[in-house]
Write a protein that binds this DNA or RNA. Structure first.
Length: 463
RNA sequence: GGUCCCAUCGUCUAGUGGACUAGGACGUCGGCCUCUCACGCCGAAAACACGAGUUCGAACCUCGUUGGGACCA
């Protein structure tokens, strides 16, 4: 059975790259009816924070990635790693190293001076007896010669020479295990069959394979996904504003848009652009994951988001819109307005946040007029138009589009102006701006009283 | 610096030796629609990094060059 995992360290928020790695693991396991495990690699006591763990869990949930097992916390498994480290010593596949950090530092400097590689010189490798009372780290006995090759599911065959690898520390002198050791122990114990992770781990892979073998476990399949880059083509980091995935939620993106975008970033299925979650599970495979890094493109994400806003259920969008309106301190006078507002704005907004901003004027008759709009359309010249529209409108219902059209046509005829010249002043009076949903739609949503209030207020503002 | 990886429009990508006059999508530009803004529709510009080789034939295979990235130091 296929079993994958996502194993982030809670030393930062769940960023876009991490989310995509998680997604690929999730999709791959679900595609094969397998199991997806979540493991939190929190062995770095200094930098790990609960806040980050919470962000990661929440982010995954929001995106719609559901794990079958876990979350497991490495901090709770320290004994297991220690036990495995000593097991390797017993098997003669690891050894105690008594070199002090100072000695190591000196050796390193010396090697660099001589133009050699700054790797550990294996001083303690052949020590026969443990030295009592002296602190030690445990090092892994890396084969001195030979090659290690693995078949990456995305990149094909990758080969390393063992000479390039030194005897890495698996357990520090303070008893804490190191990264390359804990991943292997956990992945082996948890029965992970496919490790899908970032490109940045390729160089760790040969060491890890060696550790699998030493421990007597079968190495899993590896698939290294290229990293996501920022516009400057370097790895995404805080500089690129790639903080938390949840920030996209706060910016008004829909989770399915983000999932769709992330999946298509570095993976393709012919010419298809739009994928539901179910479709992704059905169609995702490692064969069509690209090998070169992808650059994050906000415009395309926005396009997908607007697509999902357009095609999403109005009630659902209304609920989200309400949250954003509240966040913007906009008081919702009548909840029944929300659905019609969504209907009128879903083709115009790229994010729900944008939608909330566009919707603001619907909720308060004391609207703010945009400077330029007022200058151009609320003038002594247009005042007559507004007055005659208000006069006619008092006899009409707010949902009677036909009557409103007739009224405007009448004004067009008597003034000799173009329809747009009649409508724009009305639009600015009602919305405070020159761009808005269709004028009849706006009137209908606002209702008779609001429309009359706003017209009066606009007319007064001209005086 | 060492090791490893990568290379098709600005961006995401299709492409697995002949169907390639290199396809789709975002973005850009132009047009249509239109009460404004959007939406929608139509159209355009836009790429195989370079050089050798293999082959009847190369975006696709091989080698090299250049460029980029990651990890380690």
């Amino acid at each position: 059975m296929v079993k994958t995992r996502f194993a982030p360290s809670p030393t930062g928020y769940l960023h876009i790259g991490g989310a995509r790695t998680a997604l690929f693991n999730y999709l791959f396991s679900k595609h094969h009816n397998g199991v997806f495990v979540l493991r939190i690699e929190d062995t770095d006591m200094e930098r790990s924070k609960d806040e980050y763990t919470r962000d990661i869990l929440e982010g995954l949930k929001w995106l719609g990635i559901i794990w079958d097992e876990g979350p497991f916390f490495q901090r709770e498994r320290m004994e297991i790693y220690r036990e495995h480290a000593y097991r390797l010593i017993e098997k003669g596949l690891a050894y105690r190293c008594y070199c002090t950090p100072e000695e190591l530092e000196e050796k390193r400097n010396q090697a660099i001076k001589e133009g050699k590689k700054a790797t550990y010189d294996r001083t303690c490798r052949e020590l026969k007896e443990p030295v009592a009372e002296k602190p030690y780290a445990i090092r892994f006995k890396t084969p001195i010669t030979g090659q290690i090759t693995f078949n990456d599911l995305i990149r094909g065959k990758i080969t390393f020479n063992c000479e390039e690898l030194d005897d890495l520390i698996i357990l520090r002198s303070d008893g804490t295990p190191t990264y390359n050791f804990t991943v292997v122990v956990d992945d082996a114990l948890m029965g992970i069959t496919h490790i899908i992770r970032g490109d940045d781990h390729i160089n760790n892979t040969p060491r890890q394979i060696l550790i699998y073998e030493a421990l007597g476990y079968k190495a899993p399949n590896f698939a290294h996904v290229p990293l996501i880059h920022g516009k400057d083509r370097t790895r995404l980091s805080k500089r690129h504003g790639a903080t938390s995935l949840l920030e996209y939620k706060n910016e008004g993106f829909l989770p399915e848009a983000l999932m769709n975008y992330l999946a298509r970033l570095g993976w393709a299925y012919g010419d298809q652009e739009i994928f539901s979650k179910e479709e992704l599970i059905e169609k995702f495979d490692l064969d069509h994951v690209g090998k070169s890094p992808a650059i994050f493109d906000m415009d395309k994400l926005k396009w997908l988001n607007s697509h999902y806003i357009k095609t999403s259920d109005d009630n659902r969008i209304a609920v989200i819109l309400e949250e954003f309106l509240t966040k913007l301190n906009i008081k919702i006078d009548k909840k029944e307005k929300l659905i019609p507002i969504v209907k009128s704005l879903k083709d115009r907004a790229k994010t729900i946040k944008e939608m909330a901003q566009m919707a603001e004027f619907f909720f308060n008759d004391e609207i703010h007029y945009e400077e330029k709009a007022k200058e151009k359309f609320l003038t002594p010249d247009t005042r007559k138009i507004l007055e005659s529209f208000l006069e006619g409108f008092t006899h009409i219902k707010a949902d009677d589009e036909q009557a409103q059209k007739a009224l405007i046509e009448g004004i067009v005829k008597t003034t000799g102006k173009k329809p747009v010249d009649v409508i724009q002043p009305i639009r600015v009076s009602l919305c405070g701006r020159t761009a808005s949903p269709g004028i009849f739609e706006v009137i209908n949503i606002l209702g008779k009283e609001s429309v009359e209030n706003r017209l009066k207020r606009a007319i007064d503002s001209i005086k």
